[in-house]
Design a protein around this nucleic acid. Structure first.
Lengths: 96, 96
DNA sequence: AAAATTTGGTTTATAATGTAAACTTGTTTA
DNA sequence: TAAACAAGTTTACATTATAAACCAAATTTT
């Protein structure tokens, strides 16, 4: 009846990050930080977890002389995100 | 942009319980346990938390000679559940 | 009628998680 | 050149979730 929710996505910040990345081609660390309001530390950790899961990829480069971290969602990430959204419907439907 | 998610509801088991209770007048412990597939211990703990938050009420009685714990959602619980569902839309919308 | 099993839970211990604070490395500005 | 800032990372801590162990009463089995 209630499908298991992917614990990697069932996290406020990780879900916000995935939601942002699902809508765009790529986004950098500072953008994600601004949009989510997260602290750098928290964001860094959660990005690592999403990367380890293969849900996003991270590229490190420079913008001028300043370091720049860019994130992109992977096909697996898109798929997982869709699955999570669908699973959640089961939980939410009773309360509409 | 991303509203804060009520941490009391952002929990797989508590959300399932609230979802079940939102749809009915009342439900007892064993029913919730069967529907959610949770262990008794986990369910007991999460029911306590929802009770402490004022989201549900618990009545303890007997069905014949056997103990029976019945749960009901409160108006505050209904409200919180609705709020959570709405907040979640913000997170999910990008991934439709 | 004892003993074993089941029902309906609660308590507690442990493992996993989320988060912020502190730190690092390099850059810009005063 | 010293202070402040940018962009992150690491680490430590506090909170959570979960299962395992436990308990009391009722029921079933022998």
């Amino acid at each position: 009846m209630f499908p298991k929710l992917d614990p990697l996505l069932h996290s406020e910040l990780r879900l916000a990050v995935m939601s942002l990345l699902a809508g765009v081609d790529e986004a950098d660390f500072t953008y994600l930080k601004k949009q989510t309001g997260a602290t750098s530390g928290n964001l860094s950790v959660q990005i690592d977890k999403l990367t380890a899961a293969g849900y996003i990829t991270v590229e490190k480069g420079f913008k001028g002389k300043m370091p720049r971290t860019t994130c992109q969602i992977t096909p697996a990430g898109q798929e997982a995100f869709r699955g999570y959204v669908n699973a959640l419907q089961e939980y939410l439907s009773s309360g509409k």
